[in-house]
Simulated scan of single mutants.
Amino acid sequence: MERLRGLWACLIGFAVLAVLVLYLNPITDQRQCPNWGGNGNASAFRDDRWDLYLPLLCTVWLAAVIVEQALPSARRSETRGARALAAVLITVGVGCCGVGPLLVVCR
């Protein structure tokens, strides 16, 4: 438990986001989009609202990770700077490189 100090929001947020994306089962191939061969925007999700909810969820996750790094319990570690940087970079990386392509695949 001591090794995970300052990484709980990162790990739990990643697990929640991964399960949610697996549940939503978005389109990952552009040829499967409803607007393939046509014009206009379409959503990679069955419900168009997830085009808004998923980036908002990633933003809330990033805010939770940053707030956790500011808590006194996370600052007691000797490696707090590296751990905080890793947590924020992982969160931004998953949000931009993992979720971002899902949001633009059918655009």
Rank of each mutant, 00 (worst) to 15 (best):
A74L: 07
G81F: 07
A18H: 07
P55R: 03
L62A: 15
N39E: 15
Q32F: 04
E68R: 01
S43E: 06
Y53S: 06
L17Q: 13
Q32P: 00
S43L: 09
I27P: 06
T28I: 14
R49D: 09
S73E: 10
L62F: 12
P55H: 06
N41R: 13
D48R: 09
F14C: 14
D51N: 15
E68G: 05
T79R: 12
G37T: 07
V65N: 11
L52M: 13
C58M: 14
P55N: 09
A18S: 11
I66L: 11
L22V: 08
S77T: 10
F45N: 02
R31I: 05
R80C: 00
G37I: 08
V60Y: 02
P55W: 06
L17V: 12
G40R: 11
V21P: 01
V16T: 06
A44M: 03
L62M: 13
D29H: 12
N41F: 15
A70R: 12
D47F: 12
V21T: 11
A82H: 05
C33Y: 09
V16C: 06
P34R: 15
D51Q: 13
G37H: 10
R49H: 08
D48E: 12
R83E: 02
P34C: 09
F45G: 03
N25S: 14
G81D: 07
R83D: 01
T79F: 01
R46N: 13
C58N: 10
R83P: 00
E78R: 12
L56P: 01
C33V: 03
S73K: 09
P34Q: 14
C33N: 04
W36F: 15
E68N: 10
L17S: 15
V65W: 06
C58R: 03
C33A: 03
N39F: 15
L17F: 07
A64Q: 01
D48K: 02
R46D: 14
D51H: 09
D48T: 12
I27W: 01
P72Y: 05
P34G: 10
I66Y: 05
L17W: 00
S77G: 11
T28M: 10
S73V: 15
R49P: 00
S43W: 12
Y53C: 01
V60M: 14
N25P: 00
L24C: 04
R46F: 01
L56C: 10
N39S: 14
F14D: 05
D47R: 07
W50C: 07
I27G: 03
D51T: 03
A15H: 05
R49V: 11
D29T: 02
L52P: 00
P26L: 06
P26W: 02
A18R: 04
A18L: 10
W50G: 02
V67A: 15
G38D: 14
N41A: 14
A18G: 05
T79H: 10
Q30P: 07
W50A: 04
A15R: 07
T28E: 15
L52Q: 08
A70Q: 13
W50N: 08
V19P: 02
A42D: 08
L56D: 01
V19N: 11
P72M: 12
Q32L: 13
N39G: 05
I66H: 02
Q32W: 11
L54A: 05
A70T: 09
N41S: 12
V67Y: 14
N35C: 09
D29L: 07
V16W: 09
G37C: 06
G37F: 10
P26I: 05
F45V: 02
V67I: 13
T59H: 00
T79P: 00
